[in-house]
């Protein structure tokens, strides 16, 4: 890290190799698109390279990079929104699902995870960004607001709305469908 801050390109390339999978994962979760995620990753590392001297080390490098990536994704999606409507993407393979201990628990966990993935992709990008950064990446409300260019109270309102929509999509729709099926029988 120190070598990279001193201008050592080899050291920065090593940082890229160590972090690009996480950066791409975040970029894809925010944009919901392979090509957009690639562009965001490229832009994020360019900005990180440019701003590396300003990194003070009071946060983890990964957290600093998450903030830059979130900012790039927000800019990218803002630009994109001016050009076309958002589209939903196909399922993306997940490499490393967290293992559960028992088969039933694993199946339930996988089912819930799939539903959450789908519900996240169905969220409008502005709501998705806030809930992804808060609940998956544990960024503070203040950091989220700063990187998305919104007020902290707006970030909280969006988080609230996102969680309610996710709850509806993940749990309530199933329960409603189940109740209707039972009535039909």
């Amino acid at each position: 890290m120190v070598a990279a801050q001193g201008g050592d390109r080899g050291a920065f390339d090593a940082l890229v190799r160590a972090t690009y999978v996480d950066t791409y994962t975040l970029a894809h979760r925010l944009t919901g698109d392979d090509d957009d995620a690639r562009d965001v990753v490229q832009e994020a590392y360019l900005r990180a390279f440019r701003g590396l001297r300003r990194f003070r080390g009071d946060a983890q490098f990964s957290t600093w990079l998450y903030r830059i990536t979130a900012n790039c994704a927000s800019t990218h999606l803002g630009r994109r929104r001016r050009h076309r409507h958002e589209e939903l993407d196909d399922d993306l393979p997940v490499d490393d699902p967290r293992p559960a201990h028992d088969p039933v628990g694993r199946a339930e966990h996988a089912h819930l995870r799939d539903r959450v993935h789908r519900a996240l992709r169905a969220l409008p990008p502005r709501l998705r960004a806030v809930v992804v950064l808060r609940d998956i990446y544990d960024l503070s409300h203040e950091a989220i607001a700063a990187e998305l260019g919104i007020s902290e109270s707006a970030a909280k309102v969006r988080l609230h709305r996102a969680r309610r929509k996710l709850r509806d999509d993940v749990f309530l729709r199933d329960e409603r469908d189940g109740a209707e099926a039972t009535r039909a029988v």
Binding site: D22, P93, D96
Partner: peptide, 15 residues
């Protein structure tokens, strides 16, 4: 929902 999201923090997408 929150627990599922936190667990997703450990997942990595195929790049």
């Amino acid at each position: 929902l929150r627990r599922a999201m936190v667990a997703m923090g450990a997942e990595r997408l195929a790049v």
